[in-house]
Design a protein around this nucleic acid. Structure first.
Lengths: 334, 334
DNA sequence: ATGAAAGCGCTAACAT
DNA sequence: ATGTTAGCGCTTTCAT
């Protein structure tokens, strides 16, 4: 690998001049510029970004720390973040935490050590609670989860409204006994649950605790919890799930019990995954604008990188209710 | 951010000693070690990896360049790569190329500039064809695609067998007019097609070119191509797709045409995605061992990092045919 | 066993 | 407009 010195030697100039040419500084004589460029081409010179970063104390890398890349929501967001970062000349350091606070801390440290320009992060509740103790050396934009009060940039869904909207839809369809499964590790599940409860409350319904569960936001938990719900003396008429992994697990459980959707049981969830419209009946979902979330988060982060003094902002996006066949009106049911 | 100098000063030792303690060198007096460790803790010192990398000319970062992170195959592989890398103390620089050779080259350059320890890459045919011109400065493991002859480490599916296996299953089910949609940008699609053709040939069937298509390996293409196939004067009895995005598109097209699977048309594909077993009827697939692919690729890469002289290896994994309802026997059909 | 010092490749302040 | 040089934070000879 040839270095800037080799180029300087080949072009018979100083390394400073090479650096200037590469950085497109204005005051370089065309003749020299040509010589440098020729040498660069001839030697196939590529600047060593490590050295550049060390010297300039900043990198063109963004960190993205998500809890599970297999969750289609994060997959979609990651893709949007990557695209946006790329468009701005940034790259992506991707980390997976499995909702594990220790891994979160470790990766956060890593980001600091790698001198990333900034980080996009979906934290667990635990890490969020000790956020102020962390003293991170880089700007952060939270996605999917945040503290109401937290003084951090964030791009979030209006989870309260989203939970309400989905619950209201269920109520409007005549459902009364609603089983609900929420993710336990994050603020998001809690907020969606609050929206859900608010909707029931507004409709004059009381909350039956045995119908409301908080579990690990993964397929297996969705499956087992749905079986439990279905096994209740008076099983719910519909299952409300707060993320798509839970929805998948619930669907599997319902199928295995030989129950027909929507005739015997309804099912709704979050995130308009590829399969939500592919299964039959298609699943009613509260779709999140994943592209917009990823794009906004990246742009927000880049703006903060450019201006660290800028006041904290939270971007709240609205979800969209997509009504499909899995939650059609149930007449004449108890 | 405190540096190694600050620590040295606080512990009243030289930076060399701090470095030795951190690197767990054997010959440091316990007393000094304690002082250093105390200073590290007190100052919350974190080594600057950029500086470390510059000095040691190597990093603990692995590059992963995939064509589309939204493809569940790559999502699953990425997850496995991340896990394995993490277990070995490495991080992941993730890039998305959209099957775009220019982006591939750009990202490959970036990897060099970022001094990654190595790269796992799923290249397009075009980049593969000029692989030897690239003169990469880091070791690479190819996944999903490769040249038969190429002198590069790779972890691949036995695509020929996989294509055959899936086609043979179709033949054994009595299907004779088989529409097939393959990805065009990679070697993988071609190989699966060769396996497919071999199976038909072995069964004494001739290949009907209008039934065999090569398209962009994405959902939209699967959708439109399936519509075309379905619109043929004598439409196929079953659709064979060579990746899960194509399968999803095909399924959508079939549904929109109001055709019943498997009574009116069959459907099979690759990759056992979350939804393949969730849709009804469940889809027969040739499942790839995504976890094993990601793990093997990472370990192969790490071994090569450790020993650059080691002879090139290709790890060929077998797919598994999972027969479900979407391809059941068709009796009495023409 | 420990410290002094060189140097990884680059940028930028300073000098000319 | 261009060159000289210091130094980013670290590791690793080379002395002692």
């Amino acid at each position: 690998m040839s270095s800037i010195k080799d180029v300087a030697k080949a072009a018979n100039v100083s390394t400073a001049t090479v650096s200037r040419v590469l950085a497109k500084h204005p005051h370089v004589r065309p003749a020299l510029r040509e010589r440098v460029l020729a040498a660069v081409a001839q030697l196939e010179y590529r600047p060593n970004l490590i050295a550049r970063n060390l010297r300039s104390q900043q990198s063109k890398t963004l960190g993205l720390i998500v809890s599970d890349i297999r969750n289609p929501f994060f997959t979609a967001v990651s893709r949007a973040v990557e695209d946006t970062a790329y468009a701005h000349g940034y790259n992506l350091l991707l980390c997976n935490t499995d909702e594990n606070p220790e891994k979160e801390l470790l990766y956060l440290q890593l980001m600091g050590a790698e001198q990333v320009a900034g980080v996009i992060f979906s934290p667990t509740l635990q890490t969020l609670n000790r956020w102020h103790e962390l003293h991170l050396s880089f700007p952060t934009v939270l996605i999917d989860r945040s503290l109401r009060s937290g003084d951090v940039d964030a791009v979030l869904l209006d989870n309260l409204s989203a939970g309400s909207l989905l619950a209201q839809h269920l109520l409007s369809q005549g459902y009364r006994r609603i089983g609900a499964i929420f993710g336990e590790a994050s603020t998001t599940g809690r907020e969606r649950q609050r929206g859900f409860e608010a909707a029931l409350h507004d409709a004059g319904l009381s909350i039956q605790p045995e119908y409301v569960r908080f579990v690990r936001p993964q397929s297996e938990a969705g499956y087992h919890t749905t079986l439990e719900l279905l096994g209740l003396p008076e099983p719910p008429q519909v299952i409300f799930t707060s993320n798509s992994l839970l929805t998948a697990g619930a669907l599997q459980a319902i199928r295995e019990q030989g129950l027909h959707i929507p005739a015997q049981i309804g099912l709704v969830g979050f995130d308009d995954t590829a399969w939500a419209s592919l299964v039959q009946p298609a699943i009613t979902v509260l779709a999140q604008p994943t592209d917009e979330i990823g794009r906004s988060a990246t742009e927000l982060l880049l703006q903060r990188v450019a201006d660290p003094q800028r006041p904290t902002r939270k971007i709240i996006l609205q979800g969209e209710l997509i009504v499909r066949e899995s939650s059609v009106e149930q007449r004449g049911r108890t």
